[in-house]
Amino acid sequence: MTDSVTTRPRHAARTGPAPRRPGTPAERSWWNRHQRTLAPYVFISPFYLLYGLFLLVPVFVGLYLSCTQWAGLGAPRWVGLRNYRDLLTDHSFWTSVQNTTLYVVFTLCVVVPAALLIAQALNARGLRGRDLFRLTYFMPVVISPIVITLVFGLIFDRQFGLFNATLHALFGFGGVDWLGEPAWARVSVVILVLWRWTGYLTIFFLAGLQNVPRELYEAAALDGAGPVRRFWDVTLPALRPVTAFVAVTVLVNTAQIFDEPFLLTQGGPGESTLSVTMFIFRAGFQRQQLGYAAAAGVLLFVAVFVLGQLAMRVLGVGRSSR
């Protein structure tokens, strides 16, 4: 009995007129009248507050610091553009730029096509276990980079590692110093990047492929186009927006690569795997050259910005795709 009594009014309140209906002039306060114009500003304000405090202010402070010499204590000493001049002649900095370029080129030329290939395979009609494959390939990005690099450190181990053991068993040679030899260390970092990011990029291509209408393929097949031809003439043009998105994301992210070389090789041996972000980290937080680190940060920003814009032009992001 009591149940029906209590539920009734609640039900009535939900469907019927709301108890405080805006209509009586006394209740239409200033906020009530203007809320529709002001609400969006209120809704976005937290973002811009945080944006100002934690992005805009740091960018300008960074620009200022990049023209100073400062170890974190006392007042920064103004040195003008000297940090930039020093950077351009700093051998370590150029090494880090070269390594980062290698990582970016590798990701664009190997990881992205590999992801596309895997997506193409996963998109096969009537494939069983697609979800299992897709999820397992994606898993590496879910896992803490420190765990991943730790495991890969074990696998790459010169004496006891799985990699050398497998090579030895298969081809009778082994003993590659994966992490200790400069050239191999770069290969190791690149393998790790491949392992960690391919599955992540695959899901973007797969989503793009699933949006390509089947009729397009059927029409092309009727015209006598083979699978390779269909891939070039149907799949690739249809995937242009996704490819552009993936390429720009990869470019911007890989230019800032830190986790893989830092954890796997600490930038070594020597500086053979050092990335630009690692260079900044080392200068700022291990050598207390905060101004110098800020200047390198500004250069990285300019490079990423220019390259990103260039890539967007070339790939036509924002242009209509058809």
Partner: peptide, 21 residues
Amino acid sequence: TIMFSSMAVPFAVIVVPLFVM
């Protein structure tokens, strides 16, 4: 546009000043 382009600001640019702040 301001919001969207903030995605392109590398972490390495703001890391030193942000840490100082």
